[in-house]
Design a protein around this nucleic acid. Structure first.
Lengths: 213, 213
DNA sequence: GTCTATACCCAGATAGAC
DNA sequence: GTCTATCTGGGTATAGAC
């Protein structure tokens, strides 16, 4: 490296695996994935570097080559979720109608009912956990929920639903609350049934908007 | 004490303050109250004995005279919430109609909007936090939510609402989800507006049941 | 770049004087 | 009953050999 201001600069978020097609992802990526999983199952405060390093099969001391501090790793976890949300919304955007897109979003939680029953909603749980921290991480997770609400509000607007932003908040609230109860009672069926009801509510909103334009 | 099997037996949950009318509550009670507050603001994992002892103005070592382990103290926190829930529901039961009782329950969250924005719903947060623990505490918090749902289902049944249990779950889910978003965005208004919408939903359920008995 | 060993701190819990 | 001092374990973070 001729252009040197830092002797050893971490890879800094390469697109995907840096190696050949079949090799497992690089260490940085493995660490992020493990941390994301453990933050979901054990909560943010239970996400210790020892657990993450072990799950990623990376020696503990080596973690600090990729992340200066534990908070940096947690920030990367939020970014990872942001990527996943963007991917999901992009795939939903390919559907033909706003109604189908909104239902697809709701269905997405129902499909993960078992995971949600076991550990809660990854995004909702992360938000709640980060909200109880002291540092700059506090506000960092609300952006995931914000993205989802804004997207839903856009779909509702396209449907001609009046008061779309408030309806979007209600929709997300119903999903998040259902996820919380599902986790509390460890009962996937609660989530699938509640999502069905939410899909009905989406239909009613769409039908009402179509009837009175 | 003539009836001695234990040399020093902790007070074991006396009804209220053991002293004269104006003295502050006993140490055990102060510890429970401080722990309840800190569990709300810092989360269960952030509820350290040092913090609790300091807030209750009790020396750290003395905590163990009242609670054998930290888990015991956390169990006492859940019990404290259970008491508060029972009190709330008992006071609501004095209202004349199920509709008014249900709205009163919803209003209860709206009145605490600032606290919810700052730290989330005490019960929902506790449930989520305990769900991520290993030990026997895991299932212990779901009972608070269970109590609320069962009570709401009873009120809806009395109203003649069909599928009352599922409607009760939906109602609680909406409240809990609204609380989660309110906390994530640190915005009390979000909760008050969402509760208003939930009250409207209660009216609609009641009106519909009355129209078609 | 990678990994071992370890410093350092703060948590829960205990001992024992008072 | 009350409180100080302390033990022990596990957490983040660093030093430094390779």
């Amino acid at each position: 490296m001729s252009d040197s201001e830092e002797a050893a600069q971490p890879p800094a978020a390469r697109p995907t695996g840096p190696r050949s097609t079949t090799a497992r992802p690089g260490k940085r990526e493995r660490l992020i994935r493990s941390a994301t999983e453990i933050a979901h199952s054990h909560g943010v405060q239970g996400t210790t570097l020892a657990l993450v390093a072990k799950a990623a099969d990376v020696p503990l001391g080596n973690v600090y080559y990729y992340f200066k501090t534990r908070d940096d790793l947690l920030r990367a976890v939020v970014d990872e979720h942001a990527r996943r949300v963007d991917d999901l919304l992009a795939s939903l955007d390919r559907r033909s109608t706003p109604r189908s897109r909104l239902k697809g979003l709701a269905r997405n939680w129902a499909e993960a009912a078992d995971l949600v029953a076991a550990h809660g909603c990854p995004i909702g749980g992360l938000s709640a956990d980060l909200g109880k921290l002291d540092g700059g991480l506090r506000a960092c997770a609300a952006r995931l929920l914000r993205t989802l609400i804004d997207w839903a509000a856009g779909q509702l607007t396209e449907l001609g639903v009046p008061d779309a932003p408030a309806e979007a908040v209600s929709l997300l609230a119903r999903v998040q609350g259902a996820a919380l109860l599902t986790n509390a009672f460890d009962d996937p069926k609660l989530l699938t049934e509640e999502i069905t009801r939410i899909e009905r509510a989406i239909d009613q909103l769409a039908d009402a908007a179509q009837a009175a334009p």
